[in-house]
Simulated scan of single mutants.
Amino acid sequence: MSATRRAAVLGSPIAHSLSPVLHRAAYRELGLSDWTYDRHEVDEAALPAFMERLDATWAGLSLTMPLKRAVIPLLDEISPTAASVEAVNTVVLTADGRRLGDNTDIPGMLAALRERGVRQVERASVLGAGATASSALAALSRICTGEVTAYVRSRARADEMRGWGERLGVTVRTAAWEDAGAAFEAPLTIATTPAGTADALAAAVPERPGTLFDVLYEPWPTTLATAWAARGGAVVGGLDLLVHQAVLQVEQMTGRSPAPLAAMRTAGEAALAAR
């Protein structure tokens, strides 16, 4: 007999995803024994056919790369938050068959920062210029009262970040990656680069650092996060982001609130420790 309600995370590659661990932990805590959450390897080419096969048992989808933008034409509506960065990581399937897209990465970032006491900063730095960097700018548009400096590797990336800043209402100044050590002078630094990219910057952590938000969760702690914590700075990690955005997904898909943050984080930490 099929489950009453189904949800899943889609992406390519997807085998590494912690989303099933987090969502299943939430279902257990909420007593949703008839809910399932799986992972499916789906690339951009296969996404339309996958969406077509969804029936009334499906409640929602989590989306990772490379599907966050590709899914938009397949949806009936997307939230202003998702539209602001042209990226959807959450799809809710309604009882009347509508497909609603949202982005929980941005409010997830804000929730993770609030948990560490960061509610407003006068300036900030962003390391990198990819998709996560645009989400970081969207989050900063709500809490940063001054300039954001983005440290990037190319003129094209610099142009992109300034463009996102204009769109999101953030004053963005760009600087060369070679000067990224200066990023840590700001009270908040958000590192959005791939694993290993920012390791060399650990030597530039100042005596009294502010807050570092490193979006990686594996490997963890990163070299930069370790150096930051050793100096007494506050560190927000990728698992914090993953859990907070998943909390919002669970609430939207199940209609139950609040989602069990502590149980989800514990399950995620245990899964990472076992790898």
Rank of each mutant, 00 (worst) to 15 (best):
L224Y: 06
S84N: 10
R39H: 13
G233V: 00
V121S: 12
T171M: 11
E52F: 04
S12W: 12
T222M: 02
R39Y: 10
M161L: 03
A136S: 13
Q252R: 15
M51R: 06
A225P: 11
D199S: 13
L30A: 13
T174A: 03
P219E: 02
L224T: 04
P48Y: 00
R69E: 15
A3Y: 14
E185I: 10
R142M: 12
A129P: 01
E218P: 08
Q245I: 00
L113P: 12
A56R: 14
L110K: 08
V118A: 09
Q249C: 07
Q252S: 14
R157C: 11
V88N: 00
T189W: 04
S19R: 10
V9N: 01
A56G: 14
G130V: 07
T193E: 10
T132N: 12
N89A: 05
A46F: 00
R142L: 13
L75G: 10
W164G: 12
E218Q: 15
N89P: 10
L67S: 02
G108Y: 02
T57S: 15
E52H: 14
A198K: 11
I14V: 06
L100K: 08
L113M: 08
L241K: 13
T145F: 05
A139F: 08
T197L: 05
M161W: 05
T4D: 15
D199N: 14
E41Q: 14
L127P: 06
L63V: 01
Q252C: 07
E147D: 12
A191Q: 14
A267T: 09
V121F: 09
P221E: 03
D102C: 05
A175Q: 10
H16S: 09
R6Y: 04
V235H: 10
E218M: 14
A202N: 12
V236G: 10
R114V: 12
A112S: 15
A49Q: 11
A263T: 09
L113K: 11
R153Q: 05
E160R: 14
R153F: 00
M65G: 08
G60P: 04
Q245G: 09
A83K: 13
V88M: 00
V247W: 03
L216P: 12
A225Y: 07
T149A: 07
A175C: 00
L201A: 05
M1V: 14
R5C: 12
E251T: 02
L272H: 08
G232Y: 02
D43L: 02
T266F: 06
M1R: 15
R5S: 14
A129N: 06
E44S: 08
A15I: 04
P73W: 01
D102R: 06
E86S: 15
G165S: 05
T222N: 06
D102Q: 03
G237I: 02
M161F: 02
A56M: 09
R231F: 01
G97T: 05
Y151L: 04
A230V: 07
L67C: 03
P107M: 06
G128F: 08
E115T: 13
G268Y: 03
D105Y: 00
L127F: 02
E41I: 01
D38R: 13
A175E: 07
E178D: 15
I78Y: 07
A200W: 08
G169H: 10
D43N: 13
P13G: 04
Y151R: 11
T64S: 07
L201W: 04
V170P: 11
V170Y: 04
